[in-house]
């Protein structure tokens, strides 16, 4: 059954025939070959696939960290492909949260100060930023560690701080490129669970990449990448149950 266009919710992210090439000496590497993809608001999407398949490249384009060689990227209906650098910074600051593989906390700032950072970049007063950051740190279970510098925290704790930081400015989208690659499997599962929980509580859209199939359990939307193309896509109806997705790359 086809759903009429007007009835479908507007996509949060829309990629249209996106190509990304990298020049390596004389060689031109196609990291993405004509990707078209829509992510709806509130989705919890996993991008997975073998190493070199283009997961990071895709995340970077969606996160406005990079621009495609051709094709367009729309965020909330707006074409953001050719925005000027300052505008892209503003959009990232306001609308997108980032979680990185290597946590990427600022080592000279405490957990609390790290979480306050996106708000302070936006010009929010320190007192308000502090309040909201404390709230987020509470949500990720780090209330007792707010004053600690990242070096004093475990990998799992650091990634929780990073998640709090990604969410503090109430973005519409959180992008997490391999957020669990530096964690042991238990911590990895916990982090995915935490993100899933926040996705459900706040309705924030999450896109995360991984090559760990075990983490796809309980993930609603699965995008399989291979050689810069989307090899398979699957949307599970009841992701909250302990249904196990078994896509084979």
């Amino acid at each position: 059954m086809r759903i009429p266009a007007a009835a479908r919710p507007a996509p949060l992210i829309e990629l249209r025939r996106v190509y990304k090439y990298y020049q390596m000496g004389d060689e031109r590497i196609a990291a993405l070959r004509g990707i078209s993809l829509r992510i709806q608001p509130g989705e919890f999407a996993a991008i997975w696939g073998p190493s070199g398949s283009g997961k990071s490249t895709l995340c970077n384009l969606v996160g406005l960290l990079d621009t495609p060689s051709s094709g367009t990227v729309h965020l909330e209906g707006q074409d953001v492909t050719t925005l000027a650098d300052d505008r892209r910074s503003e959009v990232r600051n306001r609308a997108i949260g980032f979680v990185f593989q290597g946590f990427n906390l600022i080592p000279v700032l405490s957990a609390l100060e790290n979480v306050m950072l996106p708000l302070q970049i936006a010009g929010t007063s320190a007192s308000l930023a502090r309040l909201r950051a404390l709230e987020r740190l509470g949500e990720v279970g780090l209330a007792p560690h707010t004053a600690h510098r990242p070096a004093k925290l475990s990998g799992g704790q650091q990634q929780r701080v990073a998640i709090a930081r990604a969410l503090v400015a109430d973005p519409v989208l959180v992008i997490a490129d391999e957020p669990t690659a530096n964690l042991d499997s238990e911590n990895a599962a916990n982090i995915i669970d935490l993100m899933r929980q926040l996705n459900e509580e706040h309705g924030t859209t999450f896109i995360f990449s991984t090559h760990d199939q075990r983490l796809l359990e309980r993930v609603g939307r699965q995008v399989l990448m291979r050689d810069g193309e989307i090899a398979d896509e699957r949307t599970l109806e009841q992701p909250k149950t302990s249904q196990v997705a078994t896509l084979r790359p």
């Binding site: 910074s89 990232r92 980032f98 600022i106 996106p118």
Partner: peptide
């Protein structure tokens, strides 16, 4: 360098 990348991702402008 990586930290600069992080700050930029979080919304720091070039002049920041």
């Amino acid at each position: 360098t990586r930290e600069i990348g992080t700050l930029r991702a979080l919304g720091f402008k070039r002049r920041g």
